[in-house]
Simulated scan of single mutants.
Amino acid sequence: MTCSFIPEVMQKQAPHDPPAQMRLMHAAYAKMAKALKATGRPIVYSLCQYGWDAVWEWAPSVGGNLWRTTSDIEPNMYSIYANMSVQAGLASYSGPGHWNDPDMLEVGNGELTLAENRAHFSMWAMLAAPLLAGNDLPHMKPEIRDILTNRDVIAIDQDKLGKQGSRAYVDGEVEVWTRQLAGGALAVAVLNTGDTRYSTHPFHLYLSRLGLHGPLTARDLWSGKEMALAEGMPLEPRTHEVLLLRIAEPK
């Protein structure tokens, strides 16, 4: 169940008193959580209030299972990237039973390219975000269905360790994110956030900056192929393209 507390109510009950308004909001969410629990039914409780008052710090205490951390997402890479970036630094607040929510998926919407759709889905998986499809499911194209049903990528999102990924380092407009997985495995995402093919040219993947020592073998979760990784290896991700890797035995 998604619950949103209307700002107008807070302003009416506690005009010109932001701290009191926040207390009203916290109390309202706690009251709803109590009512949901009283039903005796398993209900996922989502707090939809756009990250106000650092919601990730208090949402679990009022019974929230997930909470919006951002404004509404739009079907373009700039909005997707903005919502993704807000999650940097919030990994410690996410875990089994309580999740940061950067908003629903826009995969298959607007004029997103296939590369952008894959990047969007990949990064939400890295963030352990709820994968709520926001497109027209009955009429989606086969290539969009293939993205939304990629079992390897979904497995990253649903990994039982439940640790949200973090931004490891940035080189120009290329970002590298990592996520620890159950059993000691590691997911790595290399994302070109720039508007040109070679926003950072050449980009080099430094395993040492990820706490790793090469050479290593990884699996590309979009091509399904094995890939050799070495310290400082050059990569040339295209515009808004992601390379999503799973390293089974990092060292």
Score class of each variant (00 low, 15 high):
7 P>R: 06
10 M>A: 09
11 Q>E: 13
13 Q>A: 13
15 P>N: 06
18 P>G: 12
19 P>T: 09
21 Q>E: 11
23 R>K: 15
23 R>F: 03
24 L>V: 06
25 M>Y: 05
25 M>S: 10
25 M>L: 09
29 Y>D: 10
32 M>V: 15
32 M>P: 02
32 M>R: 02
33 A>C: 15
35 A>T: 14
39 T>M: 07
40 G>D: 13
41 R>Y: 10
42 P>S: 08
43 I>F: 04
43 I>P: 03
44 V>H: 03
47 L>G: 00
48 C>K: 01
51 G>Y: 02
56 W>H: 09
56 W>K: 02
71 S>M: 07
72 D>I: 05
72 D>V: 09
80 I>A: 11
81 Y>L: 14
81 Y>P: 00
86 V>R: 12
91 A>Y: 05
101 D>K: 01
104 M>P: 04
104 M>A: 09
105 L>N: 01
106 E>R: 09
111 E>M: 07
113 T>Y: 09
119 A>H: 01
126 M>Y: 07
127 L>S: 02
128 A>P: 03
128 A>V: 04
128 A>H: 11
130 P>I: 08
136 D>S: 06
138 P>A: 12
153 V>F: 06
157 D>N: 15
158 Q>P: 04
159 D>H: 12
162 G>S: 06
164 Q>L: 08
169 Y>P: 01
169 Y>T: 02
174 V>M: 08
175 E>N: 01
176 V>G: 00
176 V>I: 04
177 W>F: 08
181 L>R: 05
181 L>S: 11
183 G>F: 04
186 L>C: 04
188 V>T: 01
188 V>C: 02
192 N>C: 07
194 G>N: 07
194 G>V: 08
196 T>D: 10
197 R>N: 13
198 Y>S: 15
199 S>P: 07
201 H>F: 13
203 F>A: 05
207 L>T: 02
207 L>Q: 05
211 G>L: 01
217 T>W: 07
219 R>H: 13
223 S>I: 07
224 G>L: 07
225 K>N: 12
225 K>A: 13
226 E>M: 15
226 E>D: 15
233 M>C: 13
234 P>F: 13
235 L>F: 14
236 E>K: 15
236 E>D: 14
236 E>S: 15
241 E>V: 08
243 L>G: 00
248 A>E: 11
248 A>Y: 08
248 A>T: 09
249 E>M: 04
